[in-house]
Nucleic acid binder design. Structure first.
Lengths: 205, 205
DNA sequence: GTCTATACCTAGATAGAC
DNA sequence: GTCTATCTAGGTATAGAC
């Protein structure tokens, strides 16, 4: 359950290899932030961690798998943060907006996610299945939280939970796209204001 | 005004060149639909229209400019269809959903748009400015239509027109993303249902 | 203006040695 | 686990033919 979102513990790696993997993942994110997605080439990544191109690929096989691993970890962290915010009494909108805001503050992450997702829309792409699973699981997670809130009387059921999950994800992805072309937007704040303006707060709090 | 969205008439081309340009644009869209965005390489496109790689590039300079030209034409057609639907008495939601549905029925177009937009999020990308302008103009167009509807008493002003424009575009982009991974969704229908479920129809009709 | 051939560069991936 | 060398694919610039 939620296998794609929750952390996948690396098992078959020596301590040295595991450490190098960590270093590569952190460096990759930093390079995407600094040089952009296009600048995050195998060569640049390899140089940054002091490896040859082949040396770097040894740890992940392909560039896509490396990137997917970064996103998998973000998913796991986001899930923890989302559920923690809810546990602290925040509304679903607030918890969701918090995740968005947090990610927007990690330069490169939004770009990495959006770019890779669109490339992976091709069914033959190595990361296609990851995104198919991820979308399904993210929607299911939100839908479940909505149902729980409805059951506890914290939310009306005038909107079908599946639809609400779909719209949450669509808004998140869509706001990120516009944000990438006009970074003045505070996505988290924006999504909260939008829901408030659209009277969704009445439904959701 | 709306220079990016409205059709740009080609001026400095002979009849022969103009015809070839048309053939290339139509073929490119067909190839994206059949082979996917990744399959739409310069070589494949050139083969399909019976030109050498350089011969094809002669007409557009770069691959990106070719793709942008396709999107520009779609924008122009969409704008016409959108305003025509409004003129026929449809609501903004209906007119907007109609455009979405129409585009979803042109295989390859959604993929072309989404892929190119994300690649162009890099400020150095050749198509970056096109998308910056496009987002601005699409929002402005929607915002203007909303204001007009408010002025005529066909819509409440409880939601700021700018915010409504932002959410329309975000929903559109976001739904397209999920649609690409789960094409069972009828985007146009979905967006109408969503707005209805979210009680936006009360605001918008 | 339309188009070809060639040559070049970058990027990702693979084979096989150490 | 890491390297060197090599392969492939894709995009583009140049020179020049018609």
């Amino acid at each position: 359950m939620l296998a794609t979102l929750r952390a996948m513990t690396a098992i078959r790696h020596s301590p040295k290899g595991a450490a190098k993997r960590e270093e590569i993942l952190e460096t990759a994110l930093e390079i995407v932030a600094r040089l952009g997605y296009n600048g995050a080439t195998i060569r640049n990544l390899a140089d940054a961690v002091g490896l040859s191109k082949t040396g770097l690929l040894h740890h992940f096989g392909t560039k896509e798998e490396l990137f997917v691993e970064i996103l998998r970890r973000r998913d796991a962290e986001d899930l923890v943060a989302f559920e923690a915010a809810l546990a602290q009494g925040h509304s679903i909108v607030e918890a969701f907006a918090g995740v968005l805001t947090r990610n927007a503050n990690v330069p490169g992450l939004v770009q990495l996610y959006s770019r890779l997702a669109m490339e992976a829309s091709d069914p033959n792409h190595a990361a296609h299945d990851y995104f198919v699973d991820r979308y399904r699981e993210v929607r299911r997670e939100i839908e479940g939280q909505v149902r729980a809130a409805v059951a506890e009387g914290r939310m009306t059921d005038s909107v079908a939970p599946e639809q609400l999950a779909l719209i949450f994800v669509a808004l998140s992805d869509g706001l990120q796209m516009q944000w990438m072309f006009d970074s003045g937007v505070e996505m988290g704040t924006q999504i909260e204001e939008l829901f408030r303006a659209l009277r969704l707060d009445a439904l959701l709090e």
